[in-house]
Amino acid sequence: MDALSMGGYGAYVWSCYGLTFVIVVFLNWRGRLRQKRIYREIEVRLKALEDRE
């Protein structure tokens, strides 16, 4: 319990670590999402090109 309350500063400390976790995960997730999207776009375009040939 002591570790959770952090001597009365628990809310501040834990919210900071939580926020850090959220933002790092969010940045990583956005990066992956964008990569997947761009990759898919190029793949679809290239496949379509190949089919036409």
Binding site: G31, R34, I42, L46, E50
Partner: peptide
């Protein structure tokens, strides 16, 4: 590591017309 992934995305997008991207993806 996050930066590298994003740079890779950028590179892929910018080079999307080139042969190496085409060969790699196909």
């Amino acid at each position: 590591s996050m930066l590298l992934r994003r740079i890779r995305t950028e590179v892929l997008y910018r080079e999307r017309r080139t042969r190496w991207v085409r060969e790699m993806i196909l």
